[in-house]
Write a protein that binds this DNA or RNA. Sequence first.
DNA 1: AAACTATACGGACCGCTAGTCCGTTTGGCG
DNA 2: CGCCAAACGGACTAGCGGTCCGTATAGTTT
Lengths: 188, 188
Amino acid sequence: MRADALRNRESVLAAAGRLFDAAADPDQVSMDDIATAAGVGKGTLFRRFGDRIGLIRALYEQRGLRLQAALAVSPNRPAAEQAVELLRAMLRFKLDNRVLTLALESAGGGSPYRNEAYDHWHALLAGLVAEARGPQAADYLAHALLAAVRSDLVEHLRDWPEARWHAGLNALVGSVLGQSGLPTGPPR
Amino acid sequence: MRADALRNRESVLAAAGRLFDAAADPDQVSMDDIATAAGVGKGTLFRRFGDRIGLIRALYEQRGLRLQAALAVSPNRPAAEQAVELLRAMLRFKLDNRVLTLALESAGGGSPYRNEAYDHWHALLAGLVAEARGPQAADYLAHALLAAVRSDLVEHLRDWPEARWHAGLNALVGSVLGQSGLPTGPPR
DNA sequence: AAACTATACGGACCGCTAGTCCGTTTGGCG
DNA sequence: CGCCAAACGGACTAGCGGTCCGTATAGTTT
């Protein structure tokens, strides 16, 4: 990859990030807007990322990396506790990246699920579920738990205080994975 | 409402229904297509339904009426049983109306939730949850249960056999509402 | 350093869509 | 029968994602 290409790639991702963060709605950000803000021609955008979804996915992956690294399974802690932590982290991520995650999840073609990151989280959660209650239906239960923090649901409940979310997630995970190891107090 | 207006309204809804049922993807059906298939000008479409989402919602409501009427709470049956029945019915509905529900749920602007029908189902489910386990977090748990049959998740798992879905829903509802009254056998 | 070529650039351009507008038609009432 | 509010239809517009190709440049070779 040539040096200018790399530079432009970064520039586009940065501009797109800024624009999505500032927008109220994903489709207020057009590809032209991004190209202009990045100081780049539209062709460059599409050559690098293929299409709109490609660009969104690239940005999403870049931002999700920290999250992904920070949350690995550690076999010594109770599964339920880890699951709650995971869901809370995803919730926070989706609150912090509202428009971006909305863009990703409501792009056409079932795209929330056609996504490397989703598979990652799903596999992780399914493991925790299986550990806590056996392998039966663990697969589906993991999907259901992830669906409980879908970005448009988060958007719909955007004025809920943190505590209410925590109570909800605790109740949900507590029910599905078992009560053991769930801190009832406020999160750290 | 004038007679011709009513006639056209029905004609448009019928045509839209046919087209969505036949399509593989919601946005393969354009408003022009619908107008043409209904034998009606495009202006008529927009005057009657406001915009694309309005038309989709109208169609969705029309189709959901039967479902809605058939599933009312009956205070004498176990809550968990009723909840499973409700979710199964919604699953079936979404399988039977794949493209239409996809269109509704992945239209921009958090639209799955800006919907009279959603509120209806949510209120119903929240009541059942509260009955089974008390009012704490019942609201959120109902949202989570509905999210577990989101149409794009259904789409993602479209090749699962019915039994696998049933097992999943049983496990989920059983965990959240309590095992009592869950038929472990195949559904009627 | 100069020549050379694969790579990347940019923005005019295309096809298509949701949504509008307004001159024309028509249902239904007095 | 005559009138007019209501409804019609389809040409039109704005704006989008995506393409294309003539131009520019990074990096290499001699």
